[in-house]
């Protein structure tokens, strides 16, 4: 008898607290606790990786710290994988997901997205002296791609018939073909291009045109208008004052594209 009334009491307590918790604005909670919990990748350079002394570094980590600084709170980084980053947000283990997350209709059903903060695209890259600005310009050129990758499938559909597509086994083959001059341009992801630039080669791949664009956005829980507005304001401000551009140059080796 006693245990049943205790149970009832607990249920009643839970019911009375639950709506309260639901109504509380996440932004207020963050400001009150003074910590912003951010889900960041640790296995996806240059967006997030771990240094030999186990410190997380990368584009996403810098953006997390930037937002923390502008909010005036401490940032607590929570390492996630690409599979569990959204569940971490939904279960409120984190306030924001800054984990190279691309917007798509399925994800938009469960979480909200901020304005994009990082470029993420497949495109055609070439040295500065190669004149290519659209897919038609590839006529008569030799293009290297990694066989079976998205850019291979897309480019095979849209490339002019006189363009020669050379398909390599993996990204390393594609990179080698570009650096050794076996192909004039390559179709690949901007992250791969960034990896080439990071090695400081004699020939730097520059973006010529985009094939498929899916920029990264910050993920937040639904129905947090104040937090969303604040995050968007910070992104807009950082874009204007150059701090976001500096992060892009630091990790991707290229300034933020104007389209972002």
């Amino acid at each position: 008898m006693k245990s049943r009334s205790l149970l009832l009491g607990l249920v009643a307590l839970a019911l009375s607290i639950a709506p309260l918790a639901g109504h509380a604005e996440a932004l207020d909670d963050i400001m009150k606790s003074g910590t912003l919990k951010v889900a960041v990748p640790q296995d996806f350079p240059p967006f997030g990786s771990v240094t030999p002394d186990l410190k997380p570094v990368g584009y996403d980590i810098d953006v997390a710290n930037l937002i923390g600084k502008k909010l005036g709170v401490k940032v607590e980084l929570v390492p996630v994988t690409s599979a569990n980053r959204i569940p971490y947000l939904q279960t409120k283990k984190v306030d924001l997901v800054i984990s190279s997350l691309g917007k798509n209709p399925d994800r938009e059903k469960v979480i909200d997205f901020s304005e994009p903060y990082a470029p993420f695209f497949n495109g055609v890259f070439g040295a500065a002296d190669v004149k290519v600005s659209k897919v038609g310009d590839l006529a008569g050129m030799t293009v290297g791609v990694t066989r079976g990758a998205v850019e291979d499938l897309e480019l095979s559909k849209i490339a002019p018939p006189t363009a020669t597509i050379k398909r390599y086994e993996d990204n390393n083959g594609t990179i080698s073909a570009f650096l050794s001059g076996q192909v004039q341009v390559i179709a690949t992801g901007n992250v791969v291009a960034a990896a080439i630039i990071a090695k400081n080669p004699p020939k730097k791949p520059e973006t010529k045109f985009l094939i498929k664009n899916s920029p990264c956005s910050i993920g937040l829980n639904k129905d947090e208008p104040k937090l969303l507005q604040k995050v968007n304001a910070i992104i807009a401000e950082s874009r204007k004052d150059g701090s976001l551009n500096a992060i892009s140059v630091k990790w991707l080796g290229a300034p933020l594209p104007a389209t972002l």
Partner: peptide, 19 residues
């Protein structure tokens, strides 16, 4: 030789397999 994008028989196999 398929590794350097020579379109020989193994390249054909890998190509078909990836499609």
């Amino acid at each position: 030789c398929s590794q350097i994008a020579v379109e020989e028989l193994t390249f054909a196999a890998n190509f078909i397999q990836s499609r």
